[in-house]
């Protein structure tokens, strides 16, 4: 479950893979479109409501993954 989500996040960020300790804002592709893509992913496949405000609070991939899989 977690690996699958990490793969999907990596796809959105256009990198081969992500590590849970990576900082979200360090990714070159981190912008409002990436944010919306992640919000849509959380909604459609995990039924979780993410917002831009919440995303801003998440520092690392780990924070994001924990929220989505919680």
């Amino acid at each position: 479950m977690k690996d699958e989500l990490l793969t999907k996040i990596a796809e959105i960020l256009e990198v081969d893979h992500v590590n849970i300790n990576d900082n979200l804002k360090d990714f070159e592709e981190w912008d409002s479109l990436t944010a919306l893509s992640i919000i849509a992913l959380a909604d459609s496949e995990y039924n979780k409501k993410l917002t831009n405000d919440l995303l801003k609070e998440f520092k690392t991939i780990n924070h994001l993954v924990n929220f989505i899989l919680d």
């Binding site: 912008d31 944010a35 919000i39 459609s44």
Partner: peptide
């Protein structure tokens, strides 16, 4: 914060909130 430039006379939309509203 996202880099969009507008004034208070312009339309503004909280895209993430609208998206979640529609999908729910």
């Amino acid at each position: 914060a996202a880099g969009n430039v507008r004034s208070l006379d312009h339309l503004v939309m909280k895209g993430d909130q609208v998206f979640n509203f529609v999908q729910t």
